[in-house]
Design a protein around this nucleic acid. Structure first.
Lengths: 152, 152
DNA sequence: TTGCTCCTCACGTCACGTGAGGTGGC
DNA sequence: TTGCTCCTCACGTCACGTGAGGTGGC
């Protein structure tokens, strides 16, 4: 009975609806080890998720949907994330200052890596948007020319 | 011998390298009807692409990679695009003013739709970036607090 | 007790990846 | 003529989709 905050939990269907995915996808991520499978869940028992698990899944979905990373690549990032969480448990229990510093530095690197990927994406998208606007401009010019010609 | 500009053509490997995809992917798009298969290409003869075909493929890759559209969804857009190209051929041959106007209006709608999708993506990416920066901020705060504590 | 949601196989699908074996153009 | 690139099957893979048949909790 340690830190019995009794946080709200969710079933797989609720989580799926909240995040806009199917339950199958969630189970698949668990299969790959992306979601921390409650290793003591017996065969046939319903899966239960807390807010932390939902947040983690949401992060996975962003890395995949927005940045187009493969699940394998996400595992590489998420593994580091998992070890960070594991170390965060250490945080409460055994807060050696050196350990704390290492945890924070690793976490920072991870977030920075993700920020870099997001920035790249934003740059490419901006170029695409410019291109589309140029195309739009030429179309409108030609359309205007057509109307002017009509007006003669 | 009409408009014999003798434009440069490319083989599938060159195109693949330029656009950063595999030749298999290009052939697959052709299979689905996304690329205008030279319908008179006999069995076993090398595929040949002009700049227009390369541009079209590049557009497909952007819609897929940047916006995450399925090939089915792209077919819907590209089909309209194809009919636009078909009508552009009409442009040179039989330029009825009404036809021209219709072509331009349809083209404009298509580009606007794509711009909308790009903007949505940009918005979601911006929110993701903000979130990552906030996370980064709290990490740095805690790290600073740790150093201060150390300093005591 | 009755729905509703969950469970586990397990096969299907989409978008290609990856050879196998053979032919064509600078 | 010799590589190198291309060709066509065709099976494999990744990330799930889609039922089939059965069990569990408000």
């Amino acid at each position: 009975m340690l830190t019995a905050t009794k946080a709200r939990t969710f079933r797989i269907g609720e989580v799926a609806r909240r995040l806009g995915v199917t339950t199958r996808a969630i189970r698949y991520y668990e299969e790959l080890g992306l979601l921390p499978s409650p290793r003591d869940r017996p065969q046939g028992v319903h899966r239960v998720y807390d807010e932390a698990a939902v947040a983690r899944l949401q992060q996975i979905l962003k890395l995949r949907g927005l940045l187009g990373l493969s699940l394998e690549a996400i595992i590489a990032i998420a593994d580091a994330d998992t070890s960070r969480e594991a170390l965060r448990d250490t945080w409460d229990a055994d807060p050696s200052a050196a350990d704390r510093a290492r945890i924070l530095d690793e976490a920072k690197l991870l977030v920075l890596r993700q920020l870099e990927l997001v920035k790249e994406r934003q740059a490419v998208l901006s170029r695409f948007a410019c291109e589309l606007r140029r195309t739009l401009g030429t179309i409108e010019e030609r359309r205007a020319a057509l109307d002017a010609e009509e007006g003669n």
